[in-house]
Amino acid sequence: MNSVERNKKYNQYVESKKPNTKNFPTLIYAYLVGGFICMIGQGIQDLLMKIFPAMTLEVASAWMLIILIFIASFLTGIGLYDRIGEFAGGGSIVPITGFSNSITSSAMEFKKEGIIFGLCVKMFSVAGPVIVNGLAISVVVGLIYLFL
């Protein structure tokens, strides 16, 4: 048996040995926590529009996202967001709060290597690809509209 064949067989065997985790509950937690974060967002948005009647939906929505980003950043700072994430998985990764968490957590983690080369450089170690690919796809969409 050559090594390629052996490795393939071994990988298949390992795959079959992997534990069947209790996936189902984490899916429900993700749904609940994710839905809850969105409801908080809606609540903030409605509240803003009630306090400032002149505010348009678009502006209120932008403020709501900024407030959520702030809350997530703060929760990351005091060490709570990773616990929510451990419990909810996708439920706290997919909302904009997860984006905020990924930037703040990287910034905090690498602070010890200095403000410039640690904090500022490594800040985007997780969220960088999101911004890069997001901008890339916006350019692609813009180009398509330009030529349509």
């Binding site: 996708g90 990764i93 997780v126 999101v130």
Partner: peptide, 26 residues
């Protein structure tokens, strides 16, 4: 709640099924 939760649910489903890291999901 239903729509926001559903999007997160799909994210979690992807994480479980494909072992994607959170950066890739985002």
């Amino acid at each position: 709640f239903l729509v926001g939760g559903l999007i997160c649910f799909l994210g979690q489903l992807l994480i479980i099924k494909t072992n994607l890291t959170s950066a890739r999901i985002l």
